[in-house]
């Protein structure tokens, strides 16, 4: 669990339902490289996140050359995303995307000041459109990592979890349920796709007279 620099901070996997509650942000460690981190309610520090979902909104303010924002939806909720003057490539790439699209986002976990306190968002480092199948891989990956965090939450040595419990009064059950619902939704989608592509073995699609409805 070492945060020792200068290793690169890994990109955490988290569902939108959990991320929306990650309002506590802190500069971790000492020295010049001390990274900014948000605390996930299930007890893990995140400097970076990796997300996959449907890009559902892009707002490109014509008055501001150096700022663009959008919204990414996963099976559990939505992530606010944006890019600013230090991410010119991300701005250019976001301008080329046309919602709704499946996208993968690597970005920094940060918060901004909302009307009623800090709100977590993701500052985009990389964003690309992707094939739909990656969405399924990400949901499985994220559900597994959520399960791992929930399993480790009550470990004595888990300082991040202790702080999450103190700051958020974390109700673990809702994050578990959101992860379960996400896996169920993807299972349903896969079943539907299979039903569309694989003909019913009892039917005879080549036989004349089969309905087309």
């Amino acid at each position: 669990m070492s945060q020792s620099t200068p290793s690169r901070n890994p990109a955490r996997r988290v569902f939108a339902w959990e991320y929306k509650d990650a309002t506590y942000e802190e500069t971790r460690g000492d020295g010049d490289r001390s990274p900014n981190m948000v605390l996930l309610p299930t007890g893990q520090w995140a400097h970076r996140v990796f997300l996959v979902g449907s890009l559902v909104d892009i707002v490109d303010d014509p008055d501001s050359e150096n700022y663009i924002r959008g919204e990414l939806q996963d099976p559990t909720g939505r992530f606010p995303i944006d890019a600013g003057q230090f991410e010119p490539e991300a701005i250019a790439n976001m301008r080329q995307l046309d919602p709704p699209e499946f996208v993968a986002v690597t970005g920094k976990a940060v918060t901004f000041s909302g009307d009623s306190g800090p709100v977590p968002k993701v500052r985009v480092e990389s964003i690309t459109d992707i094939p739909e199948a990656l969405y399924d891989s990400w949901v499985k990956d994220t559900a597994e990592k959520t399960a791992t965090r929930l399993t480790n939450f009550s470990n004595d040595a888990n300082d991040a979890a202790a702080l999450a419990a103190e700051r958020y009064g974390t109700d673990l059950e809702q994050y578990r349920d959101a992860a379960i619902e996400a896996t169920e939704e993807v299972q349903e989608i896969i079943r539907e796709e299979m039903a569309e592509t694989e003909p019913d073995p009892d039917a005879s699609p080549t036989a004349p007279g089969v309905g087309q409805d």
Partner: peptide
């Protein structure tokens, strides 16, 4: 695969 993760949760 997803069922296995779901059961773990």
């Amino acid at each position: 695969d997803l069922e296995n993760v779901k059961q773990e949760l």
